[in-house]
Simulated assay, not measured.
Amino acid sequence: MMEAKKLAKRDYKGANKKQKFEYQCNHCKKWFKDSEVQVDHKIPVGSLLSWEDITPFLQKLIPEGLDAFQVLCKECHQVKTNKEREER
């Protein structure tokens, strides 16, 4: 997860002297400060609705490979999450 965030990072170019870095949303391609982005599982982890869901949930929670995660702004992440919930 940290590597995905590292790959989406660049030095901040704005006027705010306190902000050192900004991160690019993988969906909308805009740049955001750290508190406005979230690391997303590209393949949905799912939800815990029963005891049977625990093992598959945990197996998907920590996938292998850099391509398993992406950085999304909070708005794009919410849209993706809502779409995944509708599809279930």
Rank of each mutant, 00 (worst) to 15 (best):
F57K: 03
H41C: 08
S35E: 12
D34V: 07
K20F: 07
W31E: 15
K60A: 14
K30N: 11
Q59N: 15
S35K: 10
E36Y: 00
P44C: 09
E52F: 04
W51S: 15
K33F: 05
W51N: 15
L58P: 00
C25R: 01
V39I: 13
F57V: 09
S50N: 06
S35T: 10
D34A: 14
Q19P: 01
V37S: 10
C28S: 07
K17P: 14
I54Y: 03
P44V: 02
Q38A: 14
L61Q: 12
L61V: 00
L58I: 05
I54N: 07
K30D: 13
S50Y: 02
T55D: 15
P56Y: 09
F21M: 05
H41D: 11
K42L: 15
H27Q: 14
I54S: 11
W51A: 15
F32T: 06
D34W: 06
T55Y: 11
V39A: 09
K18D: 15
H27S: 14
S50W: 00
D34Y: 08
H27P: 00
I54G: 07
L48C: 05
L58K: 07
Y23Q: 03
K17C: 13
H41E: 12
K30F: 03
E22S: 06
F57Q: 10
F57A: 12
I43V: 09
N26Y: 01
S35D: 13
S50M: 08
N26E: 05
I54C: 13
K42A: 12
K60V: 06
W51R: 01
K29C: 04
F32H: 09
D34N: 13
F21C: 12
I43P: 02
K20E: 14
E52I: 03
Y23D: 08
I43M: 09
V37I: 14
D34C: 13
D53G: 04
Q38C: 08
L61E: 11
V37L: 04
Q19Y: 05
K20A: 11
K29Y: 00
K60S: 12
D40F: 10
E36N: 07
T55M: 05
G46R: 01
S50V: 07
F32W: 11
T55P: 09
S50L: 03
P56G: 14
S50I: 06
W31V: 11
V45K: 04
Q19R: 05
Q38F: 00
K18Q: 10
W51D: 14
P44K: 05
K20R: 09
F21T: 11
K18P: 13
L61K: 08
K33G: 12
D40N: 14
E52W: 00
L61F: 10
F57Y: 15
Q19C: 12
E22V: 00
C28K: 02
Y23H: 02
